[in-house]
Simulated scan of single mutants.
Amino acid sequence: MATMKIGILGFGGLGQAAAHILTSKQEMEWVAVADQKGFAYDETGLEVKACQDSYRQQGSVGSLENIGTLSSTSIRDLMRQYPVDGYFLALPNLPNTFMGSVVREFIDAGWQGVLVDALKRTSAMEILLDMREELQAAGITYLTGCGATPGLLTAAATVAAQSYAEIHAVNVTFGVGIANWEAYRATIREDIAHMPGYTVEQAKAMTDEEVAKLLDQTDGILKLENMEHADDLMLELAGICPRDRVSVGGVVDTRNAKKPLSTNVQVTGRTFEGKISTHTFTLGDETSMAANVCGTAFGYLKAGLEFQQRGWSGLLTAADIMPKFVH
């Protein structure tokens, strides 16, 4: 496979982490990026530091000299003007319809290639599932729910389920440690939207000051239970178990890089001999949220590119196929 030309949509904490990961890859080259106010493209490869400096100091990667363009329709303009094999959509999905609206732009533009997201919410993924036939007709290979959870842990649960004749429960528990929440503003707002008493609309509308006040009240800790996470939909679609047997929750520490607890997925079922057992897959505490999300997303992006080259298009989830390792 030739070197894959990759773009990143969104350049907040997750997008910047994704860019760092690509600097060590030989099989993928980062050539395109877009934020809310502009985009940048360099067929010879973008430099992380230059993009970060432009984003932090001038408000957009579009301010980069020679290779940047300021635009209020940055994703559309980038996608229409420059050739890219695939994009990682490192975008905040607030409101729930946002990711679907981005995908709509790709379809309407007649773009063909691979798209991968790290979507979280079940209701947001259902919007994409309604677009399956359109994606296939457009020649777009779309892989959804390809972060850590949903994503890495959902795929692990799918493999672990093979030991059983029936799955009784899949429980995902995650711990996230972030030294500075402002590096992941959009991600933290998405987490707040899962808390009792908050809606997606309320979380999206919160100012940074309001978020900081809430975190002061909780000592920087967000405890999340029975989240609306697309792991349930993905495992149901894969035929593993009904969605009501899947639960997701966790703890996010917004003031310490160390995870407050180990991230794991437990799959409980009945074997063909009639025995009840539980498989547990635990992520190493040293792996960050960014490593687990972005690494997984690029693994699925590579798999998607192989499908694209074979002429397959349409929509799959992380529970449908295995990711490929990106060297």
Rank of each mutant, 00 (worst) to 15 (best):
K5T: 10
F11Y: 15
G15P: 02
G15H: 00
A17K: 12
H20E: 15
H20Q: 15
S24T: 15
Q26R: 12
W30T: 09
A40F: 00
E43L: 07
E43R: 13
G45W: 05
G45D: 08
Q52R: 06
Q52W: 05
D53S: 05
D53E: 00
R56Q: 06
Q58D: 05
G59H: 00
S63M: 14
G68V: 03
G68K: 10
S74T: 01
R76H: 09
D77R: 11
D77H: 09
Y82I: 10
P83W: 03
V84T: 14
G86I: 05
L94E: 11
P95I: 00
P95M: 13
T97I: 06
G100T: 07
W111G: 00
G113D: 12
V116H: 02
A118Q: 10
R121I: 09
T122Y: 02
S123R: 08
L128G: 02
L129Y: 15
E133N: 05
T144D: 12
T149D: 08
P150H: 12
P150A: 15
G151P: 10
L152K: 14
A156F: 01
Q162H: 09
Q162I: 11
Q162K: 13
E166I: 11
H168P: 11
H168A: 15
N171G: 09
G175R: 01
I178K: 06
W181S: 07
R185Y: 01
E190K: 02
I192Q: 07
T199P: 04
Q202C: 06
A205M: 13
T207G: 06
T207S: 14
D208H: 00
E209A: 10
T218H: 06
I221Y: 05
L222Q: 13
H229S: 12
A230R: 06
D231I: 06
M234K: 03
L237Y: 00
A238W: 09
D244E: 11
G249F: 00
V252I: 06
N256V: 00
S262K: 13
S262E: 11
T268C: 15
G269I: 15
T271Y: 01
E273V: 12
K275T: 14
I276V: 14
S277T: 07
H279P: 08
T280E: 11
T282K: 03
G284T: 03
D285M: 07
S288P: 11
S288H: 08
M289S: 07
V293D: 08
G295S: 08
T296H: 03
L301I: 01
L315R: 05
K324N: 15
V326F: 01
